[in-house]
Amino acid sequence: MAVPNKKHASQPCVIPGGFTVLDIKFTKNSPAAHQLFVKEHKVRLEKTSSRPLDRTLFVLNIPPYCTEDVITRLFSQFGAIQSVELKDKPGHPEPTEQKLSKYFTTKQKQGFSVGYIVYTKPSGVTAAKTHPQNVPLIVSTEDHPVRTGLHKWIHQYSQSFVQPDTLQQAVDYFMSDYDRRKEEDAERKKKEAEQQEEDEEGWVKVTKGAKGTKVRPHSEAADKRALEKEGKKTKRKELLRFYSWQHRESQREHIAELRKKFEEDKQKIALLRAQRKFKPY
């Protein structure tokens, strides 16, 4: 451990770049510790309000066995916590389109993660940043043991069972929601189409319409098909072996083909020779 100088042992360890180093151990008696790097969350363009700049702590290098609950427990010693968000990589929070039931969310990677901890008060952030390094955070304590290894896998296995009814409910809920959205969509489209129609007096109201939506979305595949059709048409019209120059041309092509093949083969041979591939034994 190069950083922590014995002198500053009880001091917070701050490295250039503004991060404070916190040690984190799995149990009290673990001989080695990982280092957490914490800093106040500071981004120039934060669009969302889920990470208020003054109250959010940015944590790097969170070990895989730390779930959001564990992090909440560990960091609530610095102040009351509003929310904890763990991610694979630092970056903007993904806009969650809709709430999925837990059976349908894709499983998260169980690697080292980064965290955004939002305290209710800005003081939590400062408290965390001034935490001395020689007082490590302990992940698994007697009161709150953290499951790993076989315990965890057996637990996971028994948790993986779903009551078919519950699953069915989740599906039904989602599908009815989906149908509703679908209907709304259709309604909206219908309305737009109606607007395009003539009224009784033969007038059409011209509107800008919703941005980026057209009545019938055209597709890339359809475009390609049309082009191909066109190409075939022109090809059909072409005359082959009609003029003498065409014949000459094809002969020339043949020779060129042979030459090209010859050159390629020569190159291959040279390569194989370089690798001494012609020694039979």
């Binding site: 451990m1 190069a2 950083v3 490295i15 250039p16 770049g17 991060f19 180093v21 799995f26 673990s30 001989p31 080695a32 510790a33 990982h34 280092q35 790097f37 790097l60 290098n61 070990p63 895989p64 990589k89 630092p90 690697g111 080292f112 980064v114």
Partner: peptide, 28 residues
Amino acid sequence: TGMMGARRVEVTEDKPSTVPNVEAILLD
């Protein structure tokens, strides 16, 4: 910040650099 997984920091001449935290990894 993007690649700090399982690493520790060493500061030389005010420049932090990182290497894998092998003892902790072995423990993990």
